[in-house]
Write a protein that binds this DNA or RNA. Structure first.
Lengths: 128, 128
DNA sequence: TCGTTTCGGCTACAGACGTAATCGAATTAC
DNA sequence: GTAATTCGATTACGTCTGTAGCCGAAACGA
């Protein structure tokens, strides 16, 4: 498959915060991104613009002109990113096996009752 | 803002590789760490020594003198580190819920038959 | 005792990251 | 039409990371 030059360019944590905004709504301008993200993290507009241009450089965000300004939109799906990060963690910490991760979360009380029920449902689903 | 040195101090990926060696066997000397880790990553001894001293600075690795040299041992449990990293990922990508992570792994085919069986067993265990 | 090896401890340095100010062109306001 | 505003682009800069070299003291060999 035409795997475009992906994994090379890692998305940093700050950049990820910007991506979340773009996944939530797009295409939007830098100012709009800042409206969203500067509420949570205490960033200024220049910071957001820097992060956006780095994301554009990394080819994970695309731009389209909108009059005098630019609108930004993600070029990768959130599920791809999330899946990749999840797999990276599982590989690095659990030798690629998901069960130990599950056990770890269970042990550290990170699983709510809802989580358990949901996971059970998913398991039943997969068993069919 | 003042450097928070309490419990923070993140362990980088390269440092983590060193930690894995220490968790596997300890206390050991820098040379022994290199024997293990320089096989996988292509590092030289100076690199390993730098990583070790950074870990000591971060107070996650302790030293004890052994004649003229030092022996290193981890000061944090692997399960604590692994648990923390797992929770960080779940918080950052899945809003703190474990179920979506599970769903993600399922969707990306990252779950083996063994994983499923193991997780089912864990679930039954927790249901008691 | 004197050179050689062996360590740990500083030093180095480029690239990534977090955070932001400044510049220059285009646009809007008078 | 000229000043003020608005953007993207460029530049800045300290920290963290990856990767490693050099130095001086201790220890060992002869």
């Amino acid at each position: 498959m035409a795997r475009r030059k992906d994994a090379g360019e890692r998305i940093s944590e700050a950049e990820h915060a910007v991506m979340e905004v773009l996944w939530d709504k797009n295409p939007i301008s830098a100012a709009e991104v800042c409206d969203q993200v500067c509420a949570q993290r205490e960033w200024s507009i220049p910071t957001v613009k820097t992060l956006l241009s780095r994301l554009v450089q990394k080819e994970v965000v695309g731009t389209e002109p909108d009059g005098r300004k630019f609108l930004y939109r993600p070029l990768i799906a959130r599920s791809d990113y999330v899946g990749g990060e999840s797999r990276r963690l599982v590989n690095r910490l659990f030798g690629g096996r998901a069960a130990p991760l599950f056990a770890q979360l269970a042990e550290s009380e990170a699983l709510t009752e809802d989580d358990l029920a949901e996971i059970e449902a998913l398991l039943r689903e997969m068993r069919k």
